[in-house]
Nucleic acid binder design. Structure first.
Lengths: 190, 190
DNA sequence: CGCGACGTTGATTTGCCTCAACGATTGTGG
DNA sequence: CCACAATCGTTGAGGCAAATCAACGTCGCG
């Protein structure tokens, strides 16, 4: 159970066998059907989700009623609304399965408990979020410095396999433009 | 020395007197003149900076040669390029003093050492970055959902005192538009 | 098989940028 | 302490990247 998560943790910190057992006892696994919501706007985010297989996304609804995707999580990524998770206040976001997805669930309560028992995991999560935040800093740089078309090509070169996996309208909003515009970029060249 | 940092840490974790001394021994303080650079593009980011008094910013130069401000740090905020700091690779960013600024410096080496000696600080930095990343998630939401004018008004309401503190051209680029446009927004109403 | 979700294409509109010229303010050296 | 330059902010004209709107093609699924 949860072996892919155990492998992931091993890349950052070493756990004793005891600790691994404690860890496992704090986790639960679940299979989620495509389009299922793990979190909805206004709800309090109760867990951090690790993707074993499949794909999740975070999005919100803008004033015109359109979905704006903010973040994707594929295999070996965690996803949550940290603001809501941390402060246990209502979320601004939806979290939804893009595909049928297998996840590991770490609830707030379990995480708090786990981090008290296994200090090494403080380090794991620190390194993890630091890496995630670094990626976010770079993403903001690209949002500010590249045109829509440049962002698409850049993303396409960086994650060619991933572009195939998600509907174009999700990708378009993630990259910060309309689905029609993405369609026109792709018509320009393959 | 570094008392404002000690106070800040106290809000998140408790340290013993011994630990506080170890901490102090790993830090250095410095006064930085306005416009001084702590990091330049292409350099490896060697430290994490805590602002005691004053203001720092991170920016990069876009293809047209203009400065694009990505982040500000005022009193009680840390700032660094986590990507470069973490992996010790060349940075994409500049870090510069907006005002004359007093900082506490925690070098990469000192941080590594410190976190080995004081596990509680792993927790401090985890909570800190988690909070920072949460703010970044929200910022991306606003970048995607609000017009330039809306972002300005929203920012102005959220941080009225701060808007007075930085040149408009820095604020404009932070909010994602040109200084001329900001000028026109302000002409619309006070 | 029919319906709804997704993608395409073209016409039109718009938010914001670019460029340029001109005030205001700051700070620095003579 | 003043003069002058550099920096910063303002204003207006014109332009462009991308949004919006609308209509139509297509595919997958119940």
């Amino acid at each position: 159970m949860g072996t892919s998560l155990h492998d992931h943790i091993k890349r950052y910190v070493k756990l004793t066998t005891d600790e691994q057992e404690i860890l496992t006892a704090h986790l639960s696994e679940q299979s989620i059907k495509k389009k299922t919501h793990l979190l909805k706007e206004g709800e309090i985010c109760r867990a951090n989700y690790f993707v074993v297989k499949g794909c999740l996304r975070a999005y919100f609804i803008n004033e015109k009623g359109g979905e704006q995707t903010c973040q994707f999580a594929i295999e070996n990524w965690w996803i949550t609304d940290y603001m809501s998770f941390d402060t246990q206040t209502p979320s601004h976001f939806f979290i939804q399965a893009v595909e049928n997805t297998e996840i590991v669930i770490l609830t707030k309560k379990m995480q708090d408990d786990l981090l008290k028992k296994i200090p090494a995991l403080e380090r794991y999560f620190r390194l993890l979020i630091q890496r995630t935040y670094a990626a976010s800093q770079l993403r903001i740089k690209y949002l500010f410095s590249q045109s829509g078309e440049e962002r698409y090509h850049h993303f396409n070169e960086s994650f060619p396999e991933f572009v195939q996996r998600v509907p174009q309208y999700m990708l378009a909003s993630y990259l910060g433009f309309s689905p029609e515009f993405l369609s026109k970029i792709r018509a320009g060249k393959t």
